[in-house]
């Protein structure tokens, strides 16, 4: 009796894990079945690349076509001058050009 109980539990856990795996592989992430994946790929195709908004917020060290941050600014031999970069920040930088976005509300 005890053996049957443990056997059933083990089978149940295995079925759950297998279900999770199958759901992911064949439904959630499969291009043919997943509408989400199809939508993501439509964006990738239209933009011409996976413009993933990753790799820190430091613009000076990003490259859309690369996705890897070099942590170097565009200054020769310079470092990133974003204050919130968590690697290196050059002290005493006086200026930083930022943009302003405004929304003009409908009248």
């Amino acid at each position: 009796m005890i053996k049957e109980k443990y056997f059933l539990r083990t089978i149940f856990v295995m079925i759950v894990l297998m279900g999770v795996y199958l759901y992911n592989d064949h439904v959630a992430t499969n291009y043919r079945h997943s509408r989400d994946t199809q939508m993501r790929m439509a964006i990738v195709r239209t933009l011409g690349g996976p413009a993933i908004p990753i790799i820190a917020q430091c613009c000076t060290s990003r490259n859309l076509a690369e996705g890897i941050y070099a942590r170097r600014s565009d200054l020769p031999g310079g470092f990133c001058f974003h204050s919130d970069c968590d690697v290196v920040a050059t002290p005493g930088v006086l200026s930083e050009k930022v943009y302003t976005l405004k929304v003009i509300k409908k009248p």
Binding site: L94, S95, V98, Y99, T100, L101, V103
Partner: peptide, 18 residues
């Protein structure tokens, strides 16, 4: 339908002096 303005201006923030 709203107008979206992207403006490249000087933002004299906490760390900006020039």
């Amino acid at each position: 339908g709203e107008r979206f303005v992207v403006e490249d201006t000087v933002d004299v923030g906490e760390r900006l002096l020039v």
